[in-house]
Write a protein that binds this DNA or RNA. Structure first.
Lengths: 153, 153
DNA sequence: CCCGATTATCAGGTATCCTTACTATCAGGT
DNA sequence: ACCTGATAGTAAGGATACCTGATAATCGGG
């Protein structure tokens, strides 16, 4: 094959996506005996960067307010997330990780990395260099599509 | 940064994964007015390569027999998949796409490609070349982990 | 011909999403 | 002040996708 078209690249990406999903989801869920689903993990990932309101979270994850409300409810009950009233606007609360929640998140992420990294270590130096260039480039063009309320997670 | 370690690569991959998921899932669901979820789409993708039994499908997708049974039930009801008895083993049925199912699948896939390709077309020639090398390499090392009942979808 | 393994469904449970209401609060204009 | 529309969040009800047992039919080897 000569040079890849963007359609070739797209089809390959579509093929790899389910593999990645399965491996990551599997590993996150195995963490530390506690059940943590991918949606929960992603919410924790957002909150790890700083406190957010419920609607800000919903926008970033592109789910309805209601879905995020339920999701956060579980995390609060488990003691991973704290709701504190926002004095400047009594309609909303600020959501932030508790110390327990942060530790849990970091542990889960570490497990996922520890599982995936040995697989990627099998790449040749050339391939690793290509990954180093390709993945951030993909990140950049895909993140555009997420324009408002952009995310990166 | 000097050369990427496999852990750097892993963390970048984890960051890109949700973007990809969201864009693809969004596009597949918009197809042709009919609601098609990602799990359904992936089942159709497997059957597009040839007939399979229910348990073979469940193994490939790494879900329980029960989950696959439900999933296939919906696809059969919609006329996208046909169940035909296997004369060589009366316990099982062969599942295959109907003409309607194949057309639906190809349309949905086309929509996803049409949406993603313009984004990828913004990559520079260097970046596209890196993607061309990197994605199949990732596919290869990740597919290992899927060892038996391998998949590629 | 029996017995363990395989194929599939039934029963029942949970999580994640949705849409459509509803309540509380805020902010702007008259 | 007061009304009005927008925004923040919850409640209610429904669908899909996953799970673990428990069962029923069939297959295959001793």
């Amino acid at each position: 094959m000569a040079t890849w078209t963007s359609e070739d690249a797209t089809r390959e990406l579509l093929a790899v996506l389910p593999l990645l999903n399965r491996i990551v989801a599997h590993e996150v869920r195995r963490e530390a005996g506690e059940e943590t689903t991918m949606p929960q993990f992603r919410v924790l990932a957002h909150l790890a960067d700083g406190a957010l309101t419920l609607s800000a979270l919903a926008k970033r994850r592109r789910v309805s307010l209601q879905s995020m409300s339920e999701l956060v409810q579980v995390l609060v009950e488990r003691g991973w997330v704290a709701r504190t009233p926002d004095p400047s606007d009594r309609r909303q609360h600020l959501l932030q990780l508790t110390a327990h929640g942060r530790a849990h998140y970091e542990r889960a992420q570490e497990m996922a990395v520890r599982r995936l990294a040995p697989l990627l270590a099998q790449l040749s130096p050339d391939e690793m260099a290509a990954v180093q260039l390709a993945i951030p480039a993909l990140h950049r063009v895909l993140a555009q599509e997420e324009s408002s309320g952009n995310d990166g997670n």
